[in-house]
Simulated assay, not measured.
Amino acid sequence: MRNDTLKLIAILSMLTDHIGLIFFPQIEFLRVVGRIAFPLFAFGIAVGSYYTKSIKKYAIRLFVFALISTVPHYLVINNMQFNILFTFLVSVIGIAFLKEEKKLYGLLWLLAVPIILPLEYGLYGVWVPVLFYLFRQKKMIQLLLFALVTIFFCLFYSTWIQLFAVPFLLLIFWKPGFQLNLPKYLFYLFYPLHLILLGIFLWFF
């Protein structure tokens, strides 16, 4: 399956999730649909980290858009956590250490930073893309590991809704009979822009 198709599904899922969170918190189905987004974006981060010509530029790009998204995320989502782009940035830097065979530094980075900083999804969010990267040639192992860490995440935070993310990861096995090519920076731009638009609706309506 082309990664661009996964990105489109993830983007639509994220939009649905945030609409539910902000405008219709009583409609839990919208939040369930939103569980599709995280594993697909995390999978995309792992794929991108592997195929990018420069993981340094990849990390810088994430950092720039994470900064751009900071104020909209704070105003619309209304929490003090660093947004998901910062979470994925920590993952990418950890993967960069692994690529350079600096495994000890990578391990320390991937354990310490999400404990010190209030990142969205915390350790769970940082490690899922890393696990996808490490087992990139073994999709079934990716699925099993994701299921295990998601169960631990749900138990730790006494939540259940994130469990819906597990079956949605099966989308990585889907091979549609069409090709979809999206603009390279679509997700990076969409993330802050959709928060700004939702914020405008929230403010005026």
Rank of each mutant, 00 (worst) to 15 (best):
R2K: 15
K7L: 13
I9N: 00
L12N: 05
S13K: 05
I19N: 01
L21Q: 07
F23R: 01
V33A: 09
F38C: 06
P39A: 07
A42V: 05
A42I: 08
G44R: 14
I45P: 08
A46H: 12
S49D: 00
S49C: 12
Y50G: 10
Y51V: 13
S54L: 13
Y58Q: 07
F63Q: 09
A66L: 04
L75S: 12
I77Q: 00
N78R: 15
Q81M: 08
N83V: 09
L85Q: 07
L89E: 00
L89H: 00
V90D: 09
I93W: 02
G94P: 11
I95P: 13
K99N: 06
E100W: 05
K103I: 14
K103Q: 02
Y105K: 10
W109A: 03
P114E: 04
P114C: 03
I115P: 09
L119P: 03
Y121D: 01
Y121F: 03
V128A: 14
Y133C: 02
Y133A: 10
L134D: 03
F135D: 04
R136W: 09
K138W: 11
K138T: 12
K138H: 15
K139M: 14
K139P: 03
I141R: 10
L143N: 13
F146T: 13
T150K: 01
L155I: 15
S158I: 12
T159W: 00
A165K: 08
F168S: 12
F173S: 11
F173I: 01
K175N: 11
K175H: 09
P183R: 13
K184L: 14
L186T: 10
Y188R: 06
F190K: 00
F190C: 04
F190Y: 10
L198R: 01
